[in-house]
Design a protein around this nucleic acid. Structure first.
Lengths: 233, 233
DNA sequence: CGTGATGAATAAGTCTGACTTTTTGTCTCC
DNA sequence: GGAGACAAAAAGTCAGACTTATTCATCACG
């Protein structure tokens, strides 16, 4: 996605990263730099750079005389967008989607409340635009177009919150929404109630009604959680 | 902190990382690998590994014929524990502490609610232990001991939530609490009301009362926010 | 027997230098 | 003034030699 062909070490990461995050090597497994270099047909220097990146994600640990050992999942930098993408593409896609949706349910209502206080006029306009776009594409199997506006809507909310930690979750939320549309859930048109809620959130933010924006957004995320529960109770 | 002496490239990161996150190089600044290698007196290979790590944190971008360009703050991986540590040690320590506290106020109440549902008997016991430890050290300038139990308390809550995304914020919250004790705020003994709240949260979790655990934790985080507001309104 | 020191094997870490590739800026030439 | 060719610059890649820390096994000593 982001920058596919950023060098040989990137290509190595594109296959080794998903393998590790998919759990193909149990925690404590030992990889050797030389072997990996051979396997991917790259020089040791390139392989070392790739290992350094995996190490900075806390996926592996490199120790002298031992090798490159895979760390337990509990130590991974699970907020790293790259790690999130790898995991969403792999086997624990479902549990990952669940935990991210729970994260959303905690973050987004608070973010919406802050947005109601801090959003600029421009952001309010953009928000309304997005909500209208969702309404316009809520019927007639226009899921792709709907998704575009849905992702934009939540990104604006997170940005407008004025909190950088929230803002940086825009990509994650977008990924979750995209995953929902393209996979498990959402076979038909989106829930009309959810669409209405988005419009109301946009209104509340414009009106500066923090409590209402927060509560409405909470309803949206509760709905998202219920969708998952229906699928896998 | 974590692993200080993990090689030459680590030493380079220890000084270059903080420099970048402190904003010493404005976005778009260009660094050259060779110059950096000279400056830190390391070989190009070591320098390249360090750059790869910075690149994986989205602090810089390396492009041929151009050099290593510093990315704008809005693109940094601000959830990377290393980045958080660098920023907390640097100039935007105060705003960073604010945004992290807001993050806490969103996450922790939800985490406490989940903990009330999912916590094991062992975790409940540990939680009570921590709360008692806080009570025991809440008077008489035992701030350090108080802090230890406070950090442990919140870590248990996040772990017991059963959500890996929440669990991985344990280190961050610990860092925020430590920062609060060792710097700006907290000159005297902790607020007795806050101590009581912690005890009550432990009780609510043990009783499986999710709504109460959530609400009580919300009061705790609101208190933390107010502390910051008093200091810098 | 256990225990601690010695030493050899191993794999990561480091350095150097040569070469390749991509990109950019410039300089023509029309 | 624009299009295309050319040259320079910096990252990217590779191969090989060397260094260093760590582990494990062996052996001597209590």
């Amino acid at each position: 996605m982001s920058t596919p062909g950023r060098g040989l070490h990137g290509h190595v990461l594109d296959t080794l990263g998903p393998e590790i995050t998919a759990g193909e090597y149990p925690p404590g497994s030992v990889l050797r730099t030389d072997e990996l270099a051979q396997r991917f047909d790259v020089s040791r220097s390139v392989m070392r750079e790739a290992v350094r990146v995996l190490e900075s994600m806390h996926l592996v640990e490199s120790r002298r005389r031992v090798g490159v050992t895979v760390r337990p999942k509990s130590e991974w930098n699970v907020y790293d967008p790259q790690v999130i993408r790898w995991r969403l593409a792999g086997k624990d896609r479902a549990p990952q989607l669940r935990s991210l949706t729970v994260l959303r349910s905690a973050i987004e209502p608070v973010a919406a409340g802050l947005a109601a206080r801090h959003a600029t006029a421009e952001q309010c306009a953009e928000l309304t635009q997005c909500a209208l776009g969702m309404v316009a594409n809520s019927r007639g199997h226009k899921l792709e177009q709907y998704l575009v506006h849905d992702m934009a809507f939540h990104r604006v909310i997170l940005d407008a919150s004025g909190n950088e930690m929230f803002a940086r979750l825009g990509d994650v939320v977008a990924e979750v929404l995209a995953g929902r549309t393209h996979h498990d859930v959402m076979f038909e048109d989106p829930d009309p109630a959810a669409v209405t809620l988005h419009v109301q959130v946009a209104e509340a933010v414009r009106a500066g009604d923090a409590a209402r924006a927060e509560e409405l957004t909470r309803e949206i995320t509760v709905g998202a959680l219920q969708e998952l529960d229906i699928l896998a109770p």
